[in-house]
Design a protein around this nucleic acid. Structure first.
Lengths: 208, 208
DNA sequence: TAGATTGTTAATCGATTAACAATC
DNA sequence: TAGATTGTTAATCGATTAACAATC
């Protein structure tokens, strides 16, 4: 199995979006590495390397078939699977994520929304009824859930992660301000919101 | 003015959080580069390089004064300024961001929330009343706003960006699925949610 | 003093870019 | 054919890591 690093995955995703937004999806539409590179502000060699890494071949004078690029990236990144996830933490952010329709474009289905707050349990948020955390294990088992999405306060994050890992969910998308480290064989993505903010504030400071 | 790249900014932020969470903030508490490196899963030389880059000096046998590290990072990243921002798009995500209390820790103040949907204008979301977009320019001018936070659908993103840039806001934190490119002298951070998702789905696919 | 830790230079590593022959 | 574009090797660049003398 090929091993793609983070920047490569990010670039592949951007190629994918560019083609989706800007190009017709029939077999006669082609795109050159130079065109993709211009959009990405990067180098055409980089684009060809990336596409070669996932097994795509282009044709001299022609370029790459746009729809092939798309479906290959889709398949490589797993967007054509059916991935089930649970959201834990029914605050505003949790509600926003649990209700985000576009996730289906990536093969992601949010099947349940949990919280421990008695005030929230039973409420309807989008398509979901907020459920108590003690139902987590049963639902994860029954629906074969592999991904946990964390939108709890920092203080609760580690405890919730332990519960998830106990039930066999070791792939975690963490939107809480806590720093979660992956368990054995697991994967964690910490979406630390302050990272993006820090970058912008630093820019503001420099230019003011 | 020193120029820090993105990974460096990210590491500085993580040092900052580590010290905040794990260490007392009095002048006698010190931290070694090796300790920070262990937490970060990186190298002690890297830590010393980063801290040296923002002008911090450590002492042999002692390490770095934790509170000094903290306040220096805080100042370098601009968290001790008063940065005003507007949020455009009063959906769930916009509401979550406009109501996120922890932004004050980074010197960020959300001063207004806008939307163009008549259904939403006038509603109260957290501490804000949703305002029509045509009030944007006046409020930006009056309150000296420098940062725009975008939580609109992809289709509306470019138009809103144009309006922001016209009123002089060229630093943009984009949570919409559109790819925004910076205007002259401006800065954009695209928080493309699918990037994190792609990384996790790819991991799931590899391990399943 | 001995030993832990810094600051910094040198070496390594990997990623990006340049060059160019092969190809349609 | 001529010329545009690929695939791939080689060169460059920058970031990370190793090494080690200086220091308290």
């Amino acid at each position: 199995m090929l091993k793609l690093n983070r920047p490569t995955l990010e670039r592949l995703l951007l190629y994918y979006h560019f083609i989706n937004v800007h190009m017709d999806q029939n077999d006669t539409v082609t795109v050159s590495s130079a065109k993709l590179a211009t959009f990405m502000d990067s180098d055409d060699t980089q684009v060809r390397k990336d596409l070669a890494a996932i097994g795509l071949k282009g044709r001299p004078r022609i370029g790459f078939v746009a729809s092939e690029v798309n479906s290959k990236i889709r398949h490589t990144l797993g967007f054509d699977e059916n991935n089930r996830a649970v959201v834990i933490g029914a605050g505003r952010l949790g509600g926003a994520i649990a209700s985000y329709k576009e996730f289906t474009d990536y093969g992601l289905e949010i099947i349940a929304l949990f919280d421990n707050d008695q005030q929230k349990i039973g409420l309807t948020v989008g398509d979901h009824i907020v459920q108590p955390l003690n139902r987590l294990a049963a639902i994860v088992k029954r629906r074969d859930v592999h991904l946990g999405i964390l939108t709890v306060p920092a203080g609760a994050a580690h405890e919730v992660v332990d519960r998830l890992v106990q039930t066999g969910v070791n792939t975690i998308w963490n939107f809480s301000p806590a720093n979660i480290t992956p368990s054995n064989g697991g994967a964690v993505r910490n979406e630390h919101i302050a990272v993006g903010l820090a970058e912008l504030l630093y820019h503001l400071k420099k230019t003011s």
